[in-house]
């Protein structure tokens, strides 16, 4: 059994759990890719507004792709073989985890953060797609490298088991994964190109229901404007608060992942040796800051501390500005990797 104190797993704190977890586990297998790089290769950047899908009674606004996609895309594009397991029986899932840990293999787990005692109380919502890496155990105490925390943390068996079998949307069903091997040489330029192409495809998608990508942002902007009239002041404020939380609270690195993506584009410029990506990265930073302006304005409205000119029309305009900026970015981005 590996001793907790002597654990050799290298832990790096990151902004977001899935991309950070993937980056950390790869680093420990000798593939040094940053969180931002994983996020870009995994085509994590997204926008979706689904008024008819409700979580905790509020419509889903998301700034990233489906949970699990980043890991899948990244491993596929880097040629990394991953073995993943799901379970019906909680006890069996823990036994399987123990076997791997006792061999010294770090194991990625999907878990519901509501049941994780080491989480700050204010963030303990029922969110099922949290990623963490189990790196060792001492009897019933597990050592966890949770990517969004500064240092590795510990968690008791019964709590971890509960978190691995949380229920609701995206329920993990004991999902765990480990790395089986790396196929040949990692081809970064090819992986980066593929990641960028996928992001552009999603963000510029011309599907009949305009809920995702740049069209999704425009649709969202239109809806935001209608909120106060349609739902009244209180409900409108709750809807707005929900969007702000999705954008800023859940480990996005700021600006609904836009700043993380800008960091990715800087790295991509080096990897692909394309100077124009630096320019696009700067524009992405501006867009991220614009999104943060939306959160700032929105929070003032929520708190009833509005200054002159703070209203839902204004918010809608900020969003339209974001949409316009992003539309230009993805079009140019698509040209550079064509």
């Amino acid at each position: 059994m590996r001793d907790n104190e002597k654990n050799s797993f290298i832990h790096r704190q990151s902004a977001h759990c899935e991309s950070g977890g993937t980056s950390n586990i790869l680093l420990n297998y000798g593939v040094d890719v940053s969180e931002a790089l994983v996020f870009g290769i995994g085509a994590g950047l997204f926008f979706g507004f689904f008024p008819f899908i409700k979580m905790n009674g509020l419509p889903v606004v998301t700034f990233r792709n489906m949970p699990g996609r980043i890991l899948k895309n990244t491993s596929k594009r880097l040629g990394i073989k991953i073995e993943s397991y799901k379970f019906k029986n909680p006890e069996k899932s823990m036994d399987a985890l123990d076997i791997l840990l006792d061999k010294g293999i770090p194991v990625g787990l999907q878990a519901g953060c509501y049941w994780l005692p080491y989480f700050p109380d204010a963030l303990r919502f029922h969110f099922n797609a949290h990623t963490l890496i189990a790196i060792g155990r001492k009897g019933d105490e597990y050592l966890i490298s949770d990517p969004v925390f500064e240092e590795p943390v510990t968690c008791l068996r019964k709590d971890l088991m509960k978190a691995r079998f949380s229920e609701g949307p995206f329920s993990p069903k004991g999902k765990m994964y480990c790395i089986k091997g790396i196929k040949g040489q990692v081809d970064l330029p090819r992986a980066v190109t593929k990641g960028i192409r996928e992001t552009c495809w999603f963000m510029l998608a011309k599907n009949p229901i305009p809920l995702i990508g740049v069209r999704g942002i425009r649709y969202f902007a239109k809806r935001v404007q209608e909120w106060p009239e349609k739902y009244g002041k209180r409900r409108a404020s709750l809807l707005l608060g929900n969007a702000i939380r999705m954008q800023e609270e859940v480990g996005t690195g700021g600006g609904g992942f836009r700043l993380m993506y800008a960091a990715f584009l800087q790295e991509a410029a080096d990897i692909l040796n394309k100077k124009e990506l630096l320019d696009i990265s700067e524009r992405m930073t501006e867009t991220g800051d614009k999104w943060r302006e939306f959160a700032l304005l929105g929070a003032r409205i929520c708190k009833d501390r509005s200054l002159d000119g703070d209203n839902y029309d204004n918010l809608s305009n900020v969003l339209l500005d974001c949409a316009a900026k992003e539309y230009g970015i993805y079009n140019d981005l698509r040209e550079t990797v064509r």
Partner: peptide, 10 residues
């Protein structure tokens, strides 16, 4: 602060 406000409201 904006994220704190939104969280507190929830």
């Amino acid at each position: 602060e904006p994220a704190n406000i939104a969280n507190q409201q929830a």
